[in-house]
Amino acid sequence: MIRSPRAVMISVLCALVLQGLSASGEREQPRLRIAEQYGIAYAPVTVLRQEQTLEEALPGYDIGWIRLANAAAIREAMLAGRVDIGFMGVPPYLIGRDRGMAWHAFTGLAETPLGLVTVEPGVASLKDLVGPYRIALPQPGSIQHILLAMAAERDLGDATVFDGRLVTMAHPDAMQALTTGSEVRSHFASQPYLSRELDLPGARLLLSGSDAFGGRFSFIIGVVSEDFLERHGGAVAVLTARIEEAIERIAGNRDVRVRLAQAYALEIDEFEELLAMPGMRYDTTIRGVDRFREFMVRAGYLTGDAR
């Protein structure tokens, strides 16, 4: 019998709704939703995702991977209970804790070179960065912003001196802005954009991340909701072990690196170069949380109410 397109559509919709209802009704499998962002710092997570080793190691779990644009989006997804584990910079994690998010940092993921690149002529240090021009970074409260504020406090005596001149931009847009002579003349970049921007004519490194921080720190850490950690601590330990394993595989297996380079739309040679740079390290040790917290409370970015 021939049915009208509308009737077909309605029955398909009904079927989908029913399926959705029954699926939510029979949820015995515990769910694990992991959110990451885009970039080479997340490579160990990308390896897990590509090779599905976590699915192998946790057969009882319904595992889902989500990629979100920034830490604020991950934090909101975790607050809404849609995500259990997220990967982000230390400052967004601390902001969440400060505001009462029940979550814990459970692993480090990567240390990477970061840096403030400027194309403004005549600027040799942070002190010279006085002009009307603007500074691009992923967003206020990001690790890039906090590192800039740390250096501003040290060199200029005021952590918030640049806060009125920030502009929120994704890395590719910011690099584009640097090349077009717009009012964005500086960018706090992470890899691979840091290296690419330093190749631009007239571009210079004003400040490196380790300079600003005064030592080593985790660029990206893994954060788990307290609720998930309490009920599935074993799964979190398995994830950490798999991340360790993925880090070893990245170091020891060129095929893995080739697949990663493809995932990030990089030539393998450029990717190998980035991996070999000083300051680039995949590592599960969490570094720098206390110093970030202490600074952020002092500068007023955290209330300091939560411990």
Binding site: A72, R75, G96, P140, S142, T168, Y301
Partner: peptide
């Protein structure tokens, strides 16, 4: 509004 969001000031 944007800064309230990124600093999670509900």
């Amino acid at each position: 509004l944007f800064t309230q969001r990124v600093f999670m000031n509900g």
